[in-house]
Simulated scan of single mutants.
Amino acid sequence: MADLNHIALFAKVVEAGSFSGAARALVMPKATVSRKIAQLEADLGARLLQRTTRRVTLTALGRAYYEDAAQGLASIERAKERIAASQAAPAGTLRVTAPVGLGAQKLMGWIAEFLQAHERIRIELKLTDDPVDLIGNGIDLAFRAGTLPDSSLITRRLGTSRLALVASPEYLSRHGRPRRIKDLKTHDCVAFGPSLDNEVWRLEGPRGWREVPVHARIAVDGSYAEVQAALAGLGIALLPLALIRHDLEAGRLEQVLHDYGIDGGTMNIVYPSNRHMPAALRAFLDFVVAKAGALPEQARMAAE
């Protein structure tokens, strides 16, 4: 079996581009580096590097071996960093962003509990329903809803929620309660998005998926504003049950057309990298994941 130290030394030679460069970086004799790489090749029974007087290059086998070895070494390094972070006292300032509705409904309570347990950590919280550039704005962690575009960011799902049709009792007393899915065409609705034009809801029901054109009196671009519009009696809204659970229990909103809705609204946490993660961020990440996992499925954080 190949020596792990020899594998790490091989990776350093590849990254430095030469035996002498690796020797300088590691503060060891060049002859020692050469001897250990030769031992690694002997253990593997394969030539990994082609030597010249000034530079080394990878063989085809060497390139494949380096790609796999680099991934393994990175995993080991992350494990070491996690242990070191767990042993260090979390401290410092975290910059966090989240949708307005999530911040108002649930996240603020979680943050209060977290800060009580970690007196040396401070949090700057930005509540917005607009996407935020994490790298450009120096954000440590973001809560984001729905399907996310591919990116280099690390994403972890916190939970899901069913989206259901709801309205305020005041609205239903004025306009009546829809009995069939096609009745939505005659009701005022709350559109989610920047425009009132061509609003169509795609809903799953007893007979499969139905696309229903709806008449929107107001369009809102944010989950918190959408909830407030429904509470104000501006129409029927399609909202995550997890986000409005307390409003339903208190009778401020009522569900209509119970057989129709959408499964799969998601809330995710997004952060730039697992590498060199500060202890404060690791502590907050672990705390949020534990809180979300402790909730029943129907009460987990919901998408916009």
Rank of each mutant, 00 (worst) to 15 (best):
E77K: 06
R78I: 03
A79G: 04
K80F: 14
K80P: 01
K80Q: 13
K80S: 11
R82I: 04
A84K: 10
S86R: 14
Q87C: 11
P90D: 06
G92S: 10
G92K: 06
T93K: 11
L94N: 01
R95C: 09
V96A: 02
V96C: 01
V96T: 02
V96P: 05
A98W: 06
P99L: 03
G101P: 02
G101R: 04
A104E: 05
A104M: 13
Q105G: 06
Q105H: 10
K106A: 15
L107P: 01
L107E: 02
M108F: 10
G109E: 02
G109Y: 00
I111D: 03
A112I: 09
A112H: 09
E113C: 08
F114Y: 10
F114N: 06
L115I: 14
A117R: 09
A117H: 05
H118S: 07
E119W: 04
R122F: 04
I123Y: 00
E124Q: 15
E124N: 11
L125E: 02
L125I: 13
K126E: 14
K126F: 07
L127W: 04
T128L: 02
T128Y: 08
D129M: 08
P131E: 09
P131A: 15
L134W: 03
G136A: 12
G136L: 04
G138Q: 06
I139D: 02
I139L: 11
D140F: 11
L141Q: 04
L141V: 05
A142N: 04
F143W: 05
R144K: 06
R144N: 09
A145G: 11
A145W: 03
G146H: 12
T147Y: 14
L148R: 06
L148H: 07
P149W: 08
S152N: 12
T155E: 14
L158D: 01
G159L: 02
G159S: 08
